[in-house]
Design a protein around this nucleic acid. Structure first.
Lengths: 144, 144
DNA sequence: ATCGGTGCAAACAATTTGCATTAGA
DNA sequence: TCTAATGCAAATTGTTTGCACCGAT
């Protein structure tokens, strides 16, 4: 479980409340990227009256602490996950809707190229590749 | 001016209306990426009663036709520009707020890497690098 | 003369905020 | 205890939609 994460919350001087634990538990257990609304629904299992507003406040906090991050996939909303390797980017399958990670040097190459040749000092890189994952590509004729 | 673009609109069977011409004119003249609201404000100079809803409808249409595109910079809204080279990505300066383009093979490399080694067939790539442009990096002590 | 496109105003969805109350430290 | 954090409900923001009218073709 997210023992280290809750510790980091405490270490940063924040209280360890029921809503925060619930959100962390949901994120830790989910294999998928979740929108706030869905995190809220699942969080209720851990603390019966967590409020959606608290879910948002918690996510914002975790983001500030670098413990969670939000991905935008093109529909209006944000999808959340526990923080992972900086250099990894997202692969978004437009058919099965799954979002995967891909590690590699691509982002690092871009950052250093921009720094070395264009004087652009990058702080954050948002990279989402939309397309068909291997599974879905093989099932072009399959059911939606 | 956007003669070719208005022609493409007509060619696709769409009417060339005042709001559409106004939006196109605004996009064509702007050096910056503009949010819909600002496009609307500027469009009024061309056609006095263009409505914000029509601006949105026009932008959506231009996007579908591949004539304009939207960038998401992290704040809630979309920033619009006339379409440009597919392989170019966005450099977003977090200090002066300017958004530049950067051409190069980075995106193409990512696409082919994913296709060749991971069976991921990419359809669209969203890449925004947030950071400090050369001008702003040199003025770290300057006014905000 | 059509009917696609518009303005207007109301609807929406995701997220944020004000405030009195509650509960971690 | 003391104040950060919560629940609740209302407010915001960016964008979309229903509908009667208007104007490009």
């Amino acid at each position: 479980m997210g023992v280290d994460i809750t510790d980091r919350l405490r270490a940063a001087g924040y209280r360890l409340t029921a809503p925060r634990q619930a959100v962390l538990a949901v994120l830790a257990e989910s294999a998928r990227h979740l929108p706030a609304e869905e995190i809220h629904e699942l969080a209720v299992a851990y603390a019966s009256d967590v409020n959606l507003a608290s879910v948002y406040r918690t996510l914002t906090l975790l983001d500030e602490l670098g413990l969670a991050s939000e991905v935008r996939l093109g529909d209006g909303r944000g999808y959340w996950e526990l923080a992972h390797d900086e250099g990894a980017y997202h692969l978004h399958c437009t058919r099965c809707r799954r979002v995967g990670h891909h590690a590699g040097d691509a982002i690092e190459r871009i950052r250093s190229h921009l720094a070395d040749h264009h004087g652009f000092e990058s702080e954050a890189v948002d990279l989402v590749v939309h397309g068909r994952c291997a599974d879905c590509r093989d099932q072009l004729a399959g059911p939606a």
